[in-house]
Design a protein around this nucleic acid. Structure first.
Length: 196
DNA sequence: CCCTGATTCGC
DNA sequence: GCGAATCAGG
């Protein structure tokens, strides 16, 4: 594919709208985001109000030496980085199997006894509200559709057909989307008033 | 890890 | 001019 006027125009339009290079590339087809970025630069349109990622970093200007540049050797990748590997602060119990749902039938899925889950209580009302919102617009994907980066929060009753997985984009690293991470990972807390 | 844009440089 | 590879940051 080449940069026809039309394609360049679309590129400009989308870039102007704040679309990401990858989105533009996907739209144009036949080009990678790198191609898009490269073109953007060649066209001279660059800095726009970026949201993130954009290297707002005032990189050292490439002042090419007029003659006989000292050749700073840009190729440099030391930093072996030993990787300290800090201990992960075990998060609260993520729903091993079934988190709470609107109407959990009285069925307890066979298997290990469910660990004490931070049920509806102890969770910020806001987080729950957001989850409810999310669950209404969740992608509702099936088990087969789960991927490394789809929210794996189960919704509904696994014993009925009304069962799906959230499916929204996961929050990097986590197994759930942002909303579900909010209720899945509790900072541990109030529950010690277990008079016993 | 995923994603973003920026730069470099051989073609 | 083009864009993959690479870099740098979130």
């Amino acid at each position: 594919m080449s940069w026809t006027d039309e394609r360049v125009e679309l590129l400009k339009k989308m870039w102007g709208e704040g679309q990401s290079a990858s989105q533009i590339a996907k739209e144009l087809g036949g080009v990678t985001r790198n191609a898009v970025i490269g073109k953007v630069h060649r066209l001279g349109l660059s800095n726009r109000a970026t949201s993130a990622g954009a290297a707002a970093a005032p990189k050292a200007a490439k002042a090419e030496a007029p003659k006989a540049a000292p050749a700073p050797k840009p190729k440099a990748k030391p930093a072996p980085k030993p990787e300290p590997k800090a201990a992960e602060p075990a998060p609260a119990q993520p729903p091993a199997t079934v988190p709470m749902s609107p109407a959990r039938k009285a069925i307890i899925p066979a298997g290990q006894p469910l660990p004490p889950q931070p049920s509806a209580n102890e969770i910020s009302p806001e987080a729950l509200a957001r989850v409810n919102e999310v669950e209404k617009t969740a992608k509702k994907i099936s088990l087969m559709e789960l991927t490394e980066r789809t929210c794996k929060w189960p919704i509904g009753d696994p014993a009925t057909p009304d069962f799906w997985f959230c499916g929204l984009p996961v929050q990097q690293g986590k197994p759930y989307c942002e909303a579900h991470v909010g209720v899945a990972f509790q900072p541990m807390s109030a529950r010690r008033d277990r008079r016993r």
